[in-house]
Amino acid sequence: MTILVIADHDNTSVRQGTLATMTAAAAIGGDVTMLVAGEGCAAAAEDAAKIADVSKVLCCDSPLYAHHLAESFAALIVGLAKDYTHVLAPAVTMGKNTLPRVAALLDVAMLSDISGVVDADTFIRPIYAGNAMATVKSGDAVKIITVRGASFDKVAHGDGTAPVETLAPGEDPGLSSFVGQELSKSERPELTSARVVISGGRGMGSADNFHHIEKLADQLSGAVGASRAAVDAGYAPNDFQVGQTGKIVAPELYVAVGISGAIQHLAGMKDSKVIVAINKDEEAPIFQVADYGLVADLFEAVPALEAELAK
């Protein structure tokens, strides 16, 4: 087995999802090459070389890959794919955007968002918002896979010594270009890898009240999440959304405040280790997955919680 792992990184270091993808690669078994593509990504390539079990890093440093536009990036990966039995990427925007295009160009199927590895051909993936788990076998010569970060441990990072090779950039297909971005700035831990996540829902009532969620998150050194309703109402930015179509999280502690617990929301957090729900409606479905439920008005419970945690 020869596996190509596409790194998700910020040019300085690899992100957590890349380390979870390495665990999936180890479960498949075989030699792992990691591709680090970007503009000014040499430090990230050095960082990738330190990951246990990476045997080689390919560093492709070019403005063409600065934003991982699918057209040029997929072409680069397709050029490499023939040497590998598996191509894996974390199921983050980059992986979800690029790998299906790679699969189509190679005329093979793709396995999205796997949560388990049975063997080198057989994988487990959630369907219907995680209400069913499909075990799927691929007969294709190369398997194109995105990996659900929340479902795999992160591999050790620090004592690997893989060589870094320079990879020449491909052609620019000239189909797309980057215009700009609006990224949410935050000093808090990244939502998908935080140890604690505090999420607010429609029950928060306003963007102003939503600051209570941020305060709780800061008290517990956690990240902030939101339901779709909270995002749609403008209480929180889109990248805070947890759920079937948002981010998938599995922290040690997930606190849902004023969230009803629709299946689409549960899909994104029900694998958390400990779930706390605060909701004034004792019938709210969120209580069916909560380890600790508090039936209360959040406008009383949240300040009380802040005070109790401050003790």
């Binding site: 934003h67 925007t93 980057f178 215009v179 971005q181």
Partner: peptide, 9 residues
């Protein structure tokens, strides 16, 4: 996108 919004042409 993961971190917020991105505009492309």
């Amino acid at each position: 996108v993961d971190g917020g919004l991105e505009t492309i042409e």
